[in-house]
Design a protein around this nucleic acid. Structure first.
Lengths: 237, 237
DNA sequence: ATTATCTATAGATCTATAGATAATGC
DNA sequence: ATTATCTATAGATCTATAGATAATGC
């Protein structure tokens, strides 16, 4: 019997075959990682899902760590540069007077559009990234790929919130990213909790709300810190 | 040589010994889970950390799943009832006019006090819960233990935000819990990102900011939904 | 000739259980 | 007498590698 189901075209060149298999492995790994987390998935699971032998995992990715990195890297660069572009554009076009909501929309809505409209793979990546973002071991991967975008956002936020302390800006960002990643995780909890009023998969509903919600939070936080003076000391521990 | 280091007292009764060993196992598991996630830890790892044989894990907890549940359950009930009490008290004492910030303080600050002042074990539990909260498989555990507190909070928020749509309330809650859990994860990312301005372990800094930040977000969100009428339909997909 | 994929297999590790040993309990 | 803990071990599973086979490439 043929090695590949007849309905799928068989690629002609080796380069094509390699590229296609690589992507099928990455897709399968991404899907499984998003469901069970990095350590909840074995190389066998991935190979089995692709319909290929385990040793092929090592042939293409050497070991599990590298497979993880490849899954993450494949899409992280794309999100990152899309958002950098959106932030740059906003920075140019806001006429020197950026708003918190405008900056957050460039940062968050750009991503929500991507995840909402680009197929299952992107949604799986987002859910996996959400798990990575709350793990100590995964945080380094976030640093590596997302520091530049985040610092760009922070820069615009500082312009939009003059007099706001750095600590408030960074903590505010921490809240934003926590909320955002949690919505990307799409665990289904909000669906059950709300009795069906909300739907984890409803990226449009998140987009409608998250930027304005977070902008108001920033403004409240920073109006406080501005009242207390820009060089407010940290509370003693 | 004695089985136990001389500096540690050896419990007299079997009941004491059982209770102490159970707790040492739970502490070790909790610590490891918080660092590497549920699937990043083996029963051997836990046994080794306690200084005891792997088979004792099965003697006390039957299997890994039950150990996980025991780790989670041990503290979840305590947090949950502490916060229920705080919300009940606030509900009684607000004179029928609750504020969003007041409700959120009862919900969030109560927990932050607990995690900040009750030793490493509680901090580890919080970090582990943060990982669980962003995983599909863990969400059921959140439902089981935290639905009552959360629905109590939702009830008060509805009183504080009359005319606000259910969808806005629930999505707002989703943002709050995402942000909160992310701070509990204490991954160290915000420390590096901010160049040391913020510190993951600084629960006081989070407490200073999170409730007022989120309250402002809720109010902005719901003033919008109130303007558009309380029965606003969901956006079409 | 090269390379994508598979077969076979080693070695490590993991979960789990049965049964022994060494404490505490009366 | 009971129970906390350990020894021994089975069976499954996992990662990884060496070498074979079956395609594509000239």
């Amino acid at each position: 019997m043929p090695r590949r189901p007849a309905n799928k075209h068989k690629p002609r060149t080796k380069a094509e075959q390699r590229a296609e298999t690589l992507e099928r492995i990455l897709d399968a790994a991404e899907h499984l990682f998003s469901k069970h987390g990095l350590n909840g998935v074995t190389l066998r699971d991935v190979a089995q899902k692709v319909g290929v032998h385990t040793s092929l995992m090592h042939y293409y990715f050497v070991d599990k760590r590298r497979l993880f990195e490849a899954v993450f890297t494949r899409r992280a660069g794309i999100t990152s540069s899309r958002r950098l572009d959106a932030l740059d554009r906003y920075d140019r076009e806001c006429g020197g007077a950026p708003t918190v909501e405008g900056a957050l929309r460039a940062f968050l809505d750009t991503d929500l559009d991507l995840y909402g409209n680009s197929g299952e793979g992107w949604k799986n990546f987002a859910a996996f990234a959400a798990q990575v973002s709350n793990s100590t071991e995964g945080a380094a991967m976030m640093d590596l790929h997302f520091d530049p975008v985040v610092l760009k956002l922070i820069g615009i936020l500082k312009k939009a919130l003059p007099g706001c302390s750095d600590a408030d800006i960074f903590w505010g960002y921490d809240f934003v990213t926590g909320a955002f990643m949690h919505t990307l995780a799409r665990t289904g909890r909000i669906d059950r909790l709300s009795g069906g009023v909300c739907n984890s998969d409803d990226f449009a509903a998140v987009k409608e709300r998250i930027a304005s919600f977070m902008a108001a939070g920033f403004i409240a936080l920073c109006s406080k810190s501005a009242r207390q003076g820009p060089a407010r000391k940290k509370a003693p521990r």
